[in-house]
């Protein structure tokens, strides 16, 4: 992206302001929950063990 392009900077600023003003607290911006991370880790471990047993 050309950061010196004035049209682009204007659009960027518009988006950042909109994010700040209208999307505060929107669940789209929530961090990934720790429960999802642990569940993913558990599934990967279970699949890895299943694979080793199968092999």
């Amino acid at each position: 992206m050309d950061v010196k392009d004035s049209a682009l900077r204007a659009e960027l600023d518009r988006r950042l302001v909109t994010l700040e003003r209208d999307e505060s607290g929107d669940p789209a911006h929530a961090p990934l929950a720790a429960a999802d991370l642990w569940l993913l880790a558990a599934i990967v471990v279970a699949l890895t063990i299943a694979g080793w047993v199968m092999a």
Partner: peptide, 20 residues
Amino acid sequence: QKGLAAMVIGNAIGVAVMLL
């Protein structure tokens, strides 16, 4: 059988790491 096991292990770990 070993091929299926290798696909399960490799893709499970590889895709999870890639997604994170």
